[in-house]
Amino acid sequence: MPTAEMTRPELVCPAGTPAGLRTAVDAGADAVYCGLQGPTNARNFPGLNFTPGELADAVRYAHGHGAKVLLAVNSFPPAGRMTPWTDAIDAGVRARVDAIIVADIGVACYARDTYPDQRLHLSVQAGAASPEAIRYFCRAFAIRRVVLPRLLTVAEIKAVHDEIPCEIEAFVFGNIGMMVEGRCALSSYATGRSTNMDGVCSPASHVRYSEDAGGALLTRLGDFAIDCFACGQKAGYPVICKGRYRAADTAPAYAFEEPVSLNLTRLLPDLMRAGVTALKIEGRQRSRAYVKAVVSAFRDAVDTFLAGREADLADLIALTEGGRQTEGAFASKTWR
C-alpha cells in the first residue's frame, strides 16, 4: 500500500457532554465537536450539550491534551429569534474553540463580521456539494473547511478536493440520515419540531410504542406509524427516513433506507488518498462506552493504515446499529 500519498487525517469525534469530550480526547481524538445547550446545533436533545462555562473548561482540557475543539452552531435561526445563535458564536469565541461550524448564511455573516479572525467550518447542514457552492462559501465567509454532504462517491470527493481552496471533512461512521442535511423538514411535518430551526430530528417526546395482540411492536412518530417489529426483533429508533411504508398496493418496504449505519472503514485508505483532511464520527447522543470503543478502534485503524498495514475492523462492525452497515453513497453511484 503506497503510504506516501496519504497524509495523516484528523480524527474528529463526537462529544455530547463534558464527560464524553474527555472520553473522546483520552481515546485518541485529534479533535472533538460539540454544541451548546438549546436550538443552536443539530443535536438538541435533553441531557446533551454544553453550557458556556462547561465549553470553556472542555477547551482547556482538550488543549491540555493536544486536541482541538470544534463548536457546532449549525442550525438555522428563524427570523426574529437570532439571539441564541449570536450568543453561541460569542460563547465559542470566548471559550477559544479552534473552529466554529456554521450552516446558516445569517449566522455565518455574524461570525465573519464580528470575529474576522475566528476560523469557520461549513457544516454538512449547509448542503454544499459542488465545487462552485463550496468556493462560494469560501469566498463569502472565508470558510477553511467544508463538511461534505453524504452524497458523493470517493472518486467525486477527490475531484471536489482538486477544485476547492479549503479542507474537506467527511463522515466515516455512525447514523446517517437519508435526506440531504439542512434540506429536510420530515420531522417538522410529523412533530412540529424542526430539524433546521430547533435542532431536533425525531424528538423522543413524540415517539410512541404500542404492542398489538400478536406481540408486535408498532413505533409511531407523532400521528404516524413508522415501523413495526416482531417479538424479539431489535427495534431501531424511529426516524422517518428509515421507516417502512406502502407504495401503491405493495407490501411494506423501507422506501428510503433500512435502519443501517454508515461504516467507511474499508474505504479509509481511499478517503485518505482522496485528500480528505478530517474523518468525522457521528454520535454525540451515544454513550461514553460507545464513544470510547469507536474512537479507539478508529485511532487504531487510521494509524495502522498509515503504517502500511491492513487494519482489523471487526470491532467496529459490532458497534453499528443492529450490526447492519452501509457504505452509503461513498462506494458507488449504484447506491443512488
Binding site: F76, P77, P78, A79, G80, R81, M82, D104, I105, G106, V107, C109, Y110, A126, G127, A128, S130, E132, A133, R135, Y136, F137, R139, A140, G182, R183, N196, M197
Partner: peptide, 30 residues
Amino acid sequence: DTSALYHLGGRPFIAGPFLNVYNEGALAFL
C-alpha cells in the same frame, strides 16, 4: 442552490425556497 450564486457574481436573481433563507441575516446578505 448556492452553486448558482458562484456563477452569478452579484447579478440579480430570485432566491428560491430551497436556498434556506430563514432569517433577516441571510436576507440582508442575499
